[in-house]
Lab assay of single mutants.
Amino acid sequence: ATNIVGKVKWYNSTKNAGFIEQDNGGKDVFVHKSAVDAAGLHSLEEGQDVIFDLEEKQGKAYAVNLRIK
Results as ranks from 00 to 15, higher is better:
Phe30Cys: 06
Leu41Cys: 06
Asn3Met: 07
Glu45Leu: 13
Gly6Val: 02
Gly6Arg: 01
Lys69Asn: 11
Val5Tyr: 13
His42Cys: 14
Val50Trp: 01
Gly18Tyr: 07
Gly40Glu: 05
Ile68Thr: 09
Ile4Gly: 03
Ile4Pro: 01
Gly6His: 00
Leu41Phe: 10
Val50Asp: 00
Thr2Arg: 14
Glu46Lys: 15
Gly47Asp: 04
Ser34Tyr: 09
Trp10Leu: 04
Lys57Ala: 10
Thr2Gln: 12
Gln58Ala: 13
Ser34Trp: 11
Gly47Ser: 05
Ala61Ser: 13
Thr14Ala: 13
Glu21Leu: 12
Asn3Lys: 06
Gly26Gln: 10
Ala1Val: 12
Asp23Asn: 14
Thr2Cys: 12
Asp23Gln: 15
Ile51Leu: 10
Phe52Asn: 00
Ala17His: 15
Thr14Phe: 13
Thr2His: 12
Ala61Thr: 14
Asn3Ala: 08
Ala39Ile: 07
Ile20Phe: 04
Ser34Thr: 12
Glu45Thr: 13
Val8Phe: 07
Ile51Val: 11
Gly18Cys: 03
Ile20His: 01
Gly59Phe: 05
Asp28Trp: 14
Ile68Trp: 06
Asp28Leu: 14
Ser13Thr: 12
Asn24Asp: 09
Phe30His: 05
Leu44Ser: 01
Gln58Leu: 12
Lys15Cys: 13
Lys69Gln: 12
Gly26Asp: 09
Asn16Phe: 10
His32Cys: 11
Gln58Asn: 15
Ser43His: 12
Val64Ser: 06
Val29Ile: 11
Lys69Thr: 12
Asn3Arg: 07
Gly6Thr: 01
Val31Asp: 00
Phe30Leu: 06
Val31Lys: 00
Val36Lys: 02
Leu54Arg: 06
Leu54Tyr: 06
Gly18Ile: 04
Val8Asp: 00
Ala61Lys: 14
Lys7Arg: 13
Lys57Trp: 13
Leu54Pro: 00
Gln48Ala: 09
Asp49Gln: 15
Gln22Lys: 08
Gly26Arg: 10
Gln48Cys: 08
Trp10Pro: 00
Asp23Lys: 15
Val50Asn: 00
Asn24Phe: 09
Ile68Asp: 04
Ala35Asn: 04
Glu45Gln: 13
Trp10Ser: 06
Asn24Val: 07
Lys57Pro: 03
Val36Met: 09
Leu66Gly: 00
Ala63Val: 06
Gly18Phe: 06
His42Val: 12
Asp49Ser: 14
Glu21Thr: 15
Val8Ile: 10
Phe19Trp: 14
Lys57His: 11
Gly25Thr: 07
Ala61Val: 15
Glu45Gly: 08
Gln22Glu: 04
Asn65Thr: 03
Ile68Phe: 10
Asn24Gln: 09
Trp10Gly: 03
Lys69Asp: 09
Glu21Gln: 14
Leu66Ile: 12
Ala38Val: 07
Glu45Asp: 10
Ser13Val: 13
Gln58Ser: 12
Glu21Phe: 10
Gln48Leu: 10
Asn3Ile: 03
Val29Asn: 00
Lys57Tyr: 13
